[in-house]
Simulated scan of single mutants.
Amino acid sequence: MSEADSEVMAAGTAQQGPERATSRGLVLALVGVLWAAAMLWSARATITGRADAEMEVTSTAYALPGAVSASLVAGAAVALAVMAFLTRGGRDPGATVRFLIATGTGLVVGLLGAVAIITINTEGWIYAVVGGTIAAAATIGGALAGFRYPRVMTAVCWGAAAVFLVGVLLTFLQDDLLPVFGAGESSASQADAAGYFGFAQGALGGVAAGLVGYRVLRRARRRSGTDLRWPLYALAGAGPGLLLVAGEILTRTAGSRVLELAGRVSALELTVQQMLSGSRLNNGLIVLFVGAFTAMVAVGRTLGTPAGDAPAPAADSPAPAEPPAPPAMPADPDEIEKAAREDDPAVATSAKDD
């Protein structure tokens, strides 16, 4: 059996049952928790720093999407670490038990995050809605970590962190980059430049998501000795965009009352909320498609050479020996008779007598 066949059989065996985590995932869990804690702390500080109720409501609406996205990743990351601990040593608690434990872990993370918002004002329903939305996001993230391929979800979480870092970096450089996209003195040029900037941010985030997801899966392959099929690489690249889209959907549904209340402050605020909501959804879709395409291109470059396109031998390698050519046989009857006379004298004598 060839080495390639053995690798294919090993990969197929690994995919017949739920795979075990290839690492403890403590670093990822720490990154997810710190990210969620930073977003919740920023949201709390922004909300409590407003003097009037109207600004407090609008600040809550602005902070909600970021807190939801971070809670999704935090719930998934902590659940992955818990599942890695439970499955170490070859233990397998079963698919249903794993899913329940992962979902419960996400719920615990979500409840802890919700406390940070609800305690701002325990009598205000708006903070209860925000806290419930955050708890739901972390629970959904934990449930996603309980599915069959934990390494794919690990790659998705690291890719989401990369997308967040790209967004933070571009936000700091926004004032310098907007003129590059055509921002001028008019409001129309500034609006167009902001749109182009948003598309560029989504595209760069998608590239980062695809490359990071690919590298995480390749590293897991070296650790475990088994690989995944290429559609799972595409899923790992598209995963951060899927999380952004899921976070936006959750914000529009579970947190809809917060957005509606913010839109009642003024007609301008309603327009701003609608524009931001559409921009977040577009950004998530761009990250999704660009991330999937980037991951597929990355894994496609590592595929083996087809059998019909075997590489040429090196210049310094010895040339293979050619088999000796068979002796040429004369085709003319006169030449055949002449050759027979030369080989056998008796044939030549009988020919003279004739």
Rank of each mutant, 00 (worst) to 15 (best):
A351T: 11
V347Q: 10
G291Y: 00
G159P: 04
A84V: 06
Y196L: 13
T46I: 06
E322H: 07
A348C: 10
R215S: 09
A155R: 02
V108E: 07
I126W: 03
T302N: 05
A137Y: 00
D353H: 09
F164V: 09
P93K: 04
T139M: 12
S187R: 12
A137Q: 05
G213E: 02
A81V: 09
G89N: 08
G25K: 05
A63E: 13
A53V: 14
T271W: 11
A346P: 00
L261H: 03
A155L: 03
R215G: 03
G182D: 02
V290C: 06
I286K: 00
S59T: 12
R257T: 14
R223S: 11
G278L: 12
G104W: 02
K338W: 13
V245F: 05
A348E: 13
L107R: 00
W125C: 01
A312R: 07
G167A: 08
G141C: 02
P333V: 09
L244A: 11
V212I: 11
R20M: 11
P240S: 02
C157P: 00
S266K: 08
A70I: 08
S187T: 14
M9G: 02
V31A: 13
G184Y: 06
F172I: 11
F147R: 14
A84C: 03
E185I: 10
T154K: 07
A203C: 06
A77C: 08
Q274W: 06
A203D: 04
V180G: 04
A21W: 01
V258C: 04
L173F: 08
P313K: 04
A128H: 15
F85M: 11
T251W: 01
P150I: 07
